[in-house]
Design a protein around this nucleic acid. Structure first.
Lengths: 341, 341
DNA sequence: CGATCGAGTGTAAACGTATACGCTGCTAGC
DNA sequence: GCTAGCAGCGTATACGTTTACACTCGATCG
């Protein structure tokens, strides 16, 4: 049962290797009789095609790569679930690369992209400037790329993408807090390098401005999209001279950290401080209190992104490049109340 | 900038393709002078080696596959993090396949394994009988396999593995509940097909027996390792004629579901019912109450597993096959109290 | 100074597959 | 009955790389 090649099968079946190949890939081009002979030989030898050789010959691997900030974030695992489902249906495997919350160096990302062996790339994370440069080069070499979740940066604007309207969603979240009577609203956003959370910050600021509410210095703090990062950021917020009555977090992971930090400080949510998250990960509803948050159709995003990538891979270019906006929804639970004062 | 091969570079540098190849892979076997010429040519042409051809020629892809039950489970993402770190250090990419909590059919798993293009496999999930059969075949064809987290099934006993002592850990968790005065202790375990949770169930039963406590019919219920599954299982538990005062869950995900279900029913944890989880995922401590649970060194398991796989890949076989047991720890938080009665 | 050695390079074969092309032999149309 | 056509199959080439082997040429040693 050592590695057996197509030659072995051909010899055993008494045909040429071309015929064996045809039996596998174009069964209709071969006589019933020979097909059976070959199938027998395949069974006997335990032959299975050498995928490496196939990939090499055909010039495609049936592997796609997805680049994301953090595999640990339940939101992204939900997106991945959608991607994976579509990939399976289309016969692709998926290779995951993590930018580790943008701490990855530009060199590493570049090396990763250059040395890849994939038919296409799904980008769920914003890239360093160097990364986008490499990507553009790649794209010119006709490596299909599709962007998900993120609003695209200008350099990548000609790639297809699918995501929610982050600005509108952030506005909606902020407006909800305002509608509940909050005026001192702060935000825990992501790293400055993350375009996605930039958009959310933009939406927050727009809503505040529209309501003619001021944002004090120190009210918008930078987290790193993790629980720990949010706890630290929240600590700063709690010590602020003019403490906010509500906090809008750029993702649920941080909302959870925020919530926990506030409770650790002996305050109550939402009585003392209200919290709104973003993503509606599955832990949001089992928190105490359950988190009010913006829900994204994560799996659907993943699916759509993968299908678009497939179209890109197959069509070569025919596929449109327009961004595809999927709907979001504010889901109201119990982490927001009217402010005490 | 269209695809440029090694020939192009050779022509431009005025050397043979062999020399170019050597410049890349064995720079010390080539004169300084020619090396510079070649490097120049590479720069000018924008050449980068065709990874497919390399893989094909060398017979290795530098890709490893990891099979796990659920990418969404934070415990596994933590293990993955360790794997990924080691993989990066060793120059491997990692391909993830999900058994989707064992709902995946045997055929799918088999097809996946047969058609793979990987240098090795890390198994974090127990496999269907058919799967293990395919695996054994694979292994005979010298595809390196290492098992993590799971206790190995008999058929796979000759593969290296690294995991905690699940039986001892489950015993410890159960004994802790007993030491707090609980006598009516039930368990929410995983699917029957999961060896891992079988071990935990075994540990639980052993501890109960040792303490001479009986386990009533209906006290050990089957979840599916998800929040939703645990909620359903817990509902059954709550309706039991002789309701337990404590519940031991086979993983934290289910402990969270359990906790949420109990709270939804209007009871309090730990006042009315105590809960112990397993894994110590990062959400365990931000629950209300924070979860008492068994902590596993997830990242470390991932790292070790990956390094062992590397040794297998490189050494061929020299590497030992003995299981590697890593330490666990009971971390006591606030989800357990003495029973009311 | 001639033989020996070895470093540096080139030539060519090999990896396993897919397929363009050509050959055979049969069928159908005239 | 002869030819055109075509289905079925084999031959041979190509994909891009690595590497065993052969070769050259300068240096070193006897």
């Amino acid at each position: 049962m050592t590695d057996v090649s197509i030659k072995e099968v051909a010899r055993l079946a008494g045909v040429s290797i071309a015929t064996v190949s045809r039996c596998i890939n174009n069964p209709e081009k071969v006589t019933e009789k020979t097909r059976l002979k070959v199938q027998d030989a395949i069974r006997q030898t335990g032959y299975s095609p050498n995928t490496l050789a196939q990939s090499f010959r055909r010039g495609r691997t049936n592997i796609v790569m997805v680049v994301l900030p953090s595999v640990g974030d339940p939101f992204f695992t939900a997106v991945m679930s959608g991607i994976r489902g579509a990939a399976r249906a289309k016969g692709y495997s998926v290779l995951i690369e993590e930018t580790q919350l943008n701490k990855m160096t530009a060199d590493e990302i570049g090396a990763m992209l250059v040395s890849n062996q994939t038919d296409g790339i799904i980008l769920l994370a914003s890239m360093s400037p160097f990364g986008t440069e490499v990507l553009s080069a790649k794209s010119k070499r006709r490596l299909p790329i599709v962007i998900g979740c993120e609003t695209v940066s200008p350099e990548l604007a000609d790639f297809p993408s699918v995501h929610i309207d982050n600005i509108a969603a952030a506005k909606e979240a902020t407006n909800y807090l305002i509608s509940q009577g909050h005026q001192r609203i702060s935000m825990v956003c992501g790293q400055a390098s993350s375009l996605l959370t930039k958009d959310r910050e933009y939406g927050y600021r727009a809503a505040m401005k529209q309501a003619e509410l001021s944002i004090e210095d120190g009210w918008v703090v930078e987290g790193d999209l993790t629980i720990a990062g949010a706890r630290k950021a929240t600590r700063n917020l709690m010590n602020h001279g003019n403490r906010p009555t509500a906090i809008f977090c750029a993702n649920d992971e941080m909302a959870i950290g925020c919530l926990h930090e506030i409770k650790s400080a002996g305050l109550q949510v939402p009585r003392d401080i209200s919290i709104v998250g973003f993503d509606d990960i599955r832990y949001a509803e089992v928190m105490d209190p359950p988190l009010t948050t913006i829900s994204q159709p994560a799996e659907e995003i993943g699916e759509r992104v993968m299908y678009r990538l497939c179209r890109r891979i197959e069509a070569g270019k025919g596929a449109s490049s327009s961004p595809e906006i999927v709907p979001h929804k504010l889901v109201i639970r119990q982490s927001v109340a009217k402010p005490a004062s």
